[in-house]
C-alpha cells in the first residue's frame, strides 16, 4: 500500500487486528462491504492488519470488531502507540467499530476491572453495567442518516455514555445498546455500535452508507437484497416478541 492517500479508484478496506478482535463473526462486515462494492463495479482491496503489523493510514474504510477484555486492552494500547488509525481518521477515513472495538474508540473503557485509555476518536466513555446485555437489539437510527431501523445481536457487559461530541446512532426500541435508551454513536464518518450479527449482514443500508462516505457518492446502484430483507423482517419482529 502506498503511503500517500489513495487517489486511485481502488477502494481499500482494512480489518483492524483480527488476531485480537474477531469474536462475533466480525469478518462478515469486511466480506459484505467488499461484495457490495464489487457488485457496483467498484474495485476493492481488503487488508487484514494483525496487531504486530504497522497500521496503514491510507485506506478508505476501517473495521474493528468485538473481543474479550484482554485483547481489547491490548488492541487499544497498540493502536495508540501506532498512530496510523488516528492519521487515517484525520484524513477522513470511514470507520465501523463494533462492541469492544466501539468502546475502545472512546476516551476510556473498562477491561479486567481497570479503566483503560481509549483512542479518543469518539466522545464516549464506557464502564461496566450491573447486568450483561445479551440478545436482540433494535433501534430507530438518527433520521439525519436516512436509514431504516437497526437490527443486531448484542452481547456485552459495558454501558456507554455519550458526550456532546457525538450523536446516538439509534434510539433503542428493544434491547439495551448503550444504556437501554440509545444505541451506538456517530460522528463525522465514524459509526460505533454494539450490534453484531454481523451488523452489516442485517443492515445492508449501513454498509452502503460507509461505501458512499468512502467514495463520496450521494447514491449507489440498488442491489437485490431479497434475503437480507427477509432476515431483517424476521429479526425486527423477533426483537418485539
Amino acid at each position: 500500500m502506498s503511503t500517500e492517500r489513495s487517489t486511485e479508484s481502488v477502494l481499500r478496506i482494512v480489518w483492524i487486528y483480527p488476531d485480537l478482535l474477531s469474536t462475533y463473526g466480525d469478518r462478515g462486515n469486511m466480506l459484505i462491504l467488499a461484495r457490495r462494492a464489487a457488485l457496483r463495479g467498484i474495485p476493492v482491496e481488503t487488508y487484514q492488519v494483525r496487531s504486530d503489523q504497522a497500521m496503514p493510514s491510507t485506506a478508505d474504510i476501517y473495521l474493528i470488531g468485538g473481543g474479550e477484555d484482554g485483547p481489547q486492552a491490548l488492541a487499544a494500547q497498540r493502536l495508540i502507540a501506532d498512530g496510523g488509525l488516528h492519521r487515517a481518521v484525520a484524513q477522513g477515513a470511514a470507520v465501523l467499530a463494533v462492541c469492544a472495538g466501539y468502546q475502545l474508540f472512546g476516551r476510556s473503557f473498562y477491561a479486567k476491572g481497570a479503566q483503560c485509555a481509549g483512542l479518543d476518536l469518539l466522545d464516549i466513555s464506557s464502564d461496566r453495567g450491573e447486568t450483561r446485555a445479551v440478545g436482540e437489539v433494535r433501534g430507530d437510527i438518527d433520521p439525519r442518516l436516512g436509514l431504516p431501523p437497526l437490527t443486531g445481536f448484542e452481547n456485552h457487559g459495558g454501558r456507554t455514555h455519550l458526550g456532546p461530541g457525538v450523536a446516538p446512532l439509534a434510539r433503542v426500541t428493544a434491547g439495551i445498546g448503550n444504556d437501554g435508551h440509545t444505541e451506538g454513536a456517530w460522528h463525522g464518518k465514524i459509526l460505533g455500535t454494539y450490534a453484531h450479527g454481523p451488523a452489516l449482514a442485517r443492515n445492508p443500508d449501513i454498509a452502503d452508507l460507509l461505501l458512499r462516505w468512502a467514495i463520496g457518492a450521494d447514491s449507489l446502484a440498488p442491489l437485490d437484497d431479497t434475503w437480507a430483507d427477509r432476515l431483517r423482517g424476521e429479526r425486527l419482529a423477533a426483537a418485539s416478541a
Binding site: Y24, G25, D26, G28, P198
Partner: peptide, 9 residues
C-alpha cells in the same frame, strides 16, 4: 446459542 454471527467464521 442464540447468536448466529459465527456463520461468518
Amino acid at each position: 446459542g442464540f447468536d448466529t454471527s459465527w456463520l461468518y467464521d
